Measured scan of single mutants.
Amino acid sequence: MAAGGDHGSPDSYRSPLASRYASPEMCFVFSDRYKFRTWRQLWLWLAEAEQTLGLPITDEQIQEMKSNLENIDFKMAAEEEKRLRHDVMAHVHTFGHCCPKAAGIIHLGATSCYVGDNTDLIILRNALDLLLPKLARVISRLADFAKERASLPTLGFTHFQPAQLTTVGKRCCLWIQDLCMDLQNLKRVRDDLRFRGVKGTTGTQASFLQLFEGDDHKVEQLDKMVTEKAGFKRAFIITGQTYTRKVDIEVLSVLASLGASVHKICTDIRLLANLKEMEEPFEKQQIGSSAMPYKRNPMRSERCCSLARHLMTLVMDPLQTASVQWFERTLDDSANRRICLAEAFLTADTILNTLQNISEGLVVYPKVIERRIRQELPFMATENIIMAMVKAGGSRQDCHEKIRVLSQQAASVVKQEGGDNDLIERIQVDAYFSPIHSQLDHLLDPSSFTGRASQQVQRFLEEEVYPLLKPYESVMKVKAELCL
């Protein structure tokens, strides 16, 4: 049975990233139509530049190519590739079939990587351009969430054990800070992308030097003109047959890092959902379990974690691919890159769409948070109580021993009897502590235990987050809708 299948058929496997999760716009960027249309555009740009620099290419040939950029006979191309065992030459023939007058000058002087690699770089750039505003929107939604809850005390956790208090907004800023680093890295790697350009079979530009009869300047002009037509500021000066596969490492490393950030955020949300302090959106008709109707599973956060793990592992592909590119190139890269580049971007696209949807509907339960604080705060307040007693004339050592005994009794009630923490009640009825009984409410005010959390939130948002989001103001209103 021949390899390949009808990918629109229910009898043929289709990647869930495309069929179930990723956005239509990201799927289109990695589609065959987008790819092969870009090949034709690159052939047109090459012909236009070659004509401008004096090669015998007519206006009629150029116009014929322009008129057929979208006229792609995919069936013919597939048949040609089956016959020739070469995808680029299959599309040269297919393009030439609908451009008979231009057929002889299509791909003039070029090698397969002229269309293959340059198209990949265009796709990487455009895919990054799709991700950047999506990530900015996630940051914006979380920034709104953090600002609104900047002063809401909550129990902090280290080692997932109760620690000092923080605020809900401050905790959210930990998430935002990681995503801001990801946004900066995505922008950097996007701006650092260079075009492969017009380089020939081993990167020496020998074929173009021959076409222009040894004119170095025209060869350099050709490279520059096509690079500018493709919208790049610069091209690699040095290439082998391909652009260095280190570029793929750079791009997928940034995406993998984004995956790590999203995994951490969504894990926190899942843990908070278990504590009943916070939940992701839950639709009115949504079913959490087929057997347990009360369940409210954090399905979206779980999906993000599941896909983020996949995204983090994909960076190993370009690392290994770059390491086995012998001399000017081997074909070890080809099949692998067809999979890992598309999957990385479709996965990143999915987790950003999902995280935006989550961040637009996060639900906080202040009463649950308050109750958990009441359970733990008495123990945390013991040092403040000791200091207040010393100020009232008591002995630190005597007070410490009193607190120690009462704390152990209260802990026994919590752990052995399943009761509430009654340390404060014990202190309130103990005559030894009568000098500070009137101060206990103040000493137990949760806001006095959150330090500068709310001020940190305000400063972080104003100095770091809002300036970073400013270039994306025009796209901030787009909502994230999930079908599944």
Results as ranks from 00 to 15, higher is better:
residue 86 H to Y: 00
residue 266 C to Y: 03
residue 289 S to L: 01
residue 293 P to Y: 03
residue 115 V to I: 15
residue 77 A to L: 15
residue 220 E to P: 01
residue 236 F to C: 06
residue 41 Q to F: 14
residue 482 L to D: 09
residue 289 S to C: 00
residue 423 L to Q: 05
residue 432 Y to S: 11
residue 234 R to W: 08
residue 59 D to N: 12
residue 22 A to H: 09
residue 222 L to D: 08
residue 388 A to M: 05
residue 186 L to C: 14
residue 447 S to F: 10
residue 327 F to Q: 11
residue 315 V to E: 05
residue 406 L to I: 14
residue 65 M to F: 07
residue 300 R to S: 07
residue 34 Y to C: 11
residue 281 P to E: 13
residue 380 M to G: 02
residue 24 P to I: 15
residue 258 L to Q: 08
residue 236 F to L: 11
residue 96 G to A: 12
residue 10 P to E: 15
residue 368 V to W: 03
residue 323 S to W: 00
residue 452 R to W: 06
residue 351 I to K: 03
residue 311 L to D: 01
residue 105 I to C: 12
residue 454 S to Q: 12
residue 143 A to G: 14
residue 335 A to N: 02
residue 28 F to D: 10
residue 223 D to N: 10
residue 153 P to V: 07
residue 172 C to L: 06
residue 262 V to W: 03
residue 375 Q to M: 10
residue 53 L to T: 11
residue 226 V to I: 07
residue 242 T to G: 06
residue 295 K to Y: 00
residue 353 N to P: 08
residue 430 D to K: 04
residue 123 I to Y: 00
residue 130 L to T: 13
residue 336 N to Q: 08
residue 300 R to H: 13
residue 406 L to R: 07
residue 148 E to Q: 14
residue 272 L to D: 04
residue 285 Q to K: 15
residue 231 G to C: 08
residue 319 L to R: 00
residue 94 T to Q: 12
residue 376 E to K: 05
residue 196 R to D: 00
residue 418 G to V: 03
residue 153 P to K: 03
residue 114 Y to S: 04
residue 349 D to Y: 06
residue 100 P to G: 07
residue 180 C to G: 12
residue 319 L to S: 01
residue 407 S to R: 00
residue 136 A to L: 14
residue 158 T to W: 00
residue 145 F to Y: 09
residue 277 E to C: 06
residue 298 P to H: 01
residue 377 L to E: 02
residue 276 K to F: 08
residue 112 S to W: 00
residue 370 E to T: 11
residue 37 R to S: 11
residue 452 R to G: 08
residue 46 L to R: 01
residue 483 C to M: 14
residue 467 P to H: 05
residue 293 P to R: 01
residue 22 A to S: 15
residue 10 P to V: 15
residue 459 R to L: 12
residue 109 G to A: 07
residue 41 Q to I: 10
residue 66 K to L: 10
residue 39 W to A: 10
residue 232 F to I: 05
residue 47 A to M: 05
residue 122 I to L: 15
residue 170 K to L: 07
residue 421 N to F: 03
residue 451 G to L: 04
residue 104 G to C: 14
residue 375 Q to Y: 06
residue 234 R to P: 04
residue 121 L to A: 11
residue 319 L to W: 02
residue 175 W to H: 00
residue 31 S to F: 01
residue 116 G to D: 15
residue 251 V to P: 03
residue 226 V to C: 09
residue 452 R to P: 04
residue 318 P to T: 08
residue 319 L to Q: 03
residue 22 A to V: 13
residue 67 S to M: 14
residue 68 N to A: 10
residue 260 A to K: 03
residue 477 K to G: 12
residue 288 G to R: 01
residue 326 W to L: 13
residue 41 Q to P: 01
residue 442 H to N: 15
residue 439 Q to G: 09
residue 95 F to Y: 12
residue 348 A to S: 11
residue 34 Y to M: 08
residue 144 D to Q: 15
residue 334 S to D: 05
residue 382 T to I: 09
residue 206 A to H: 11
residue 19 S to Y: 14
residue 106 I to P: 00
residue 164 Q to D: 00
residue 296 R to V: 13
residue 264 K to Q: 01
residue 258 L to T: 09
residue 318 P to G: 09
residue 341 L to V: 14
residue 240 G to A: 11
residue 8 G to D: 15
residue 344 A to C: 04
residue 388 A to R: 05
residue 276 K to N: 06
residue 453 A to F: 05
residue 204 T to P: 00
residue 282 F to Q: 08
residue 79 E to Q: 12
residue 273 A to L: 07
residue 163 A to L: 02
residue 157 F to S: 08
residue 402 K to E: 06
residue 102 A to E: 05
residue 456 Q to P: 02
residue 229 K to G: 04
residue 400 H to Y: 05
residue 59 D to T: 12
residue 73 D to C: 09
residue 167 T to E: 03
residue 460 F to I: 05
residue 93 H to F: 09
residue 55 L to C: 12
residue 201 T to W: 02
residue 457 V to S: 06
residue 415 K to I: 07
residue 414 V to E: 02
residue 253 S to P: 03
